[in-house]
Each structure stands twice: as C-alpha cells, then as structure tokens.
C-alpha cells in the first residue's frame, strides 16, 4: 500500500459535506436519568456532537490537510439549538456550517431524514464527498448514511476506519467489518460512513474558537445582545445559514412524520437496577432463572 501523498497541489480541491447530528448523551444513562415511572428523562441528559460524526469530521479535515483548497462544510439537521454542532465544527476546522431546521421536519425516521439531507446536499451543489458517522447514539440504526447515498445517487462505503490513499478522483480506505477488514478503492464522488475506530477528532483550535464564538443563526440572533448582532452583520462568516422546507425545495409528503414509514407502536423502559443481590447455586435451574430474567428485562438477547 502506498503511503498517503504529502500535500499535493495538483489534486483537484474537493467540496466535502460532513453530516453531523446533535444527540442526547445516551452512553451513560444511569438510574438518575430515569423518572419515577421508569421512563428516560431526556431533559437531564446533556446534548453532544454525535461521537461517530466527530470521526467523520476528522476524516474530512485529514483530506483537507492533503488537498489544498478543499472545503469542509458541516451540515446538521435538527432543532434550533443544534447550531451548537455547527459552531463546534468551526472550532475544529470546518470552513462552513449549515443548518436545516424546520418544525415540519419533526418526527422524521431515517427515510424522511435521508430525503431531507439529500435535498440539502443537492441544493448545496457540486458536492464531491459526503461523510457521516456510521450511526447516531440515539438511534443506532446506521441507516441514514446509506439511504442518503441512494437518494443522491452516490456509491457508498460504510464502516470506514482509515484513510489509506487519496488520488485524483479516487480514494482508498480501510473498512472495519464484523470479522475482519476490507480495503476498497472508491471513485469520487462518494458517500462514506465513518466508524468509531477512525482517528479521534482533533481538538478545538484556540484561534478558531475566538473567531467563531459568536457565529449565530438568525433565530439565535433575534435573542442576542446588540453587540453580537452588529458583529455578525459586519462579519458575514459569523452568520450560520438556516434552511427550511422551501429553501431545499422538499416535498411535504416526503418529510417529517408524513414521509416516515416506520412508526412507534409501543415503548417499554428497561429497569435499570435490581434491588438486592440474588444468590443462586450453579444448578441449571437457577441459571435458567437468571438468564430468563435477563432476557425478559432486555438486558441480553
């Protein structure tokens, strides 16, 4: 395998869109995050940059390091407060950020979400590469990436763990599969989903943090103090665009709840903590009892 080329100015700069989602931090849902009725208290969970998407951002920045002039655009779809994701992208090295936000997108499953993202990517125009995390921790479906790829008619490479080589109009990466790895060469344009085993995202850059601290969407600006309003007016790069249904020319029947084939029939919460230790013998009956309880409380199986 050839080593990655040093910065190569002859290569065509790429326009890369990174799909990033703001998610509740479900990784440490402890008993304190449960309401008395046993449901999850989403309100007290902090929101974070979806972990896999940070790896996708790192992937994009590594490509930008190799090909001068490459643009990295962080795209997030979500409620108004998801603008945090765009700012976080700026702090770490993204060139542009964009929000897609509209109440009418609410209730979307992965099919409706991928349609919305695909329409946005088409609207951005001339995109060479779309990178996203393999999955978001609030759903763990790993579906939005491949479904977006289908809708923009890009080939897809999932579970990317390492950038191996970058050439003119082609890219070679290592994929992490259930039982091994695969090295694939893909043409550009392409959509890739990036695994949690990809290099960790670089930290925030102090200069960029200062530069983009006051980046705001119009919705946010409306509630800000005057000096921030003036600042954003003077420095257009602080203005985070916020696109709605009309901006991306989406069909209402394909977005939000209406565009989502999958619906929730029932939700059961999982009991987080058994009260007291059960002491069991090593007999098959005792073990069956325990395994049965673990299965019925959905801890395993």
């Amino acid at each position: 395998m050839c080593p990655i080329n040093k910065k190569n100015n002859r290569m065509k700069p790429l326009k890369i869109v990174v799909l990033a989602k703001q998610v509740p931090d479900t990784r440490n849902v402890g008993p304190d995050a449960m309401k008395p009725d046993g449901t999850v208290n989403r309100g007290i969970l902090p929101t974070i940059f979806n972990p896999d998407d940070l790896h996708a951002l790192e992937f994009a920045l590594q490509i930008k390091d190799k090909i001068e002039g490459t643009q990295v655009i962080v795209l997030t779809m979500g409620p108004k407060r998801a603008a945090d994701i765009v700012r976080e992208g700026y702090y770490r090295g993204a060139d542009y950020g964009l929000m897609v936000s509209d109440r009418r997108f609410g209730g979307a499953d992965t099919l409706a979400t991928s349609y919305t993202l695909a329409m946005t990517i088409k609207k951005i125009g001339d995109v060479d590469m779309v990178l996203a995390g393999v999955q978001a921790i609030d759903g763990d479906t790993a579906q939005t990436g491949p479904q977006t790829a289908e809708k923009i008619n890009f080939p897809q490479v999932t579970y990317v763990e390492e950038l191996i080589d970058l050439g003119n109009n082609e890219i070679t990466v290592k994929r992490r599969l259930d039982k091994g790895i695969e090295i694939v060469k893909a043409p550009i344009p392409v959509l890739m989903t990036v695994n949690g085993t990809f290099d960790k995202c670089r930290s925030r850059n102090a200069k960029k943090l200062l530069k983009y601290k006051y980046a705001r969407t119009d919705t946010e600006l409306a509630r800000e103090e005057d000096f921030i309003k003036e600042l954003v007016e003077q420095r257009s790069y602080l203005h985070i665009p916020e696109w709605n249904v009309e901006d991306i020319e989406a069909e209402l029947s394909k977005i939000g709840l209406a565009g989502s084939p999958t619906k929730v029939n029932k939700v059961e919460s999982i009991v987080m903590k058994a009260s007291e230790a059960k002491i069991l013998s090593d007999s098959q009956e005792d073990i069956d009892l325990m395994v049965g309880e673990l299965i019925s409380s959905h801890v395993i199986g």
Binding site: P24, T26, R27, V29, A33, M34, T39, V40, I137, D138, G139, D140, P261, T262, K263, V264, N265, K266, V267, E268, S269, I270, M272, H298
Partner: peptide, 21 residues
C-alpha cells in the same frame, strides 16, 4: 410485523410498525 429493538442506548425497547409503505 412488530419489529422490537432496543433504542436510546439500550434504555428502552421500542416496537416499530409500518402500515402504509
């Protein structure tokens, strides 16, 4: 088809249906 899966970091079990598509 009642498709049952863990969601939200494994803290809930969701039953998903699709009747129209």
């Amino acid at each position: 088809l009642l498709a049952i899966r863990p969601a939200f970091g494994g803290s809930i079990m969701a039953t998903i249906v699709n009747w129209d598509m």
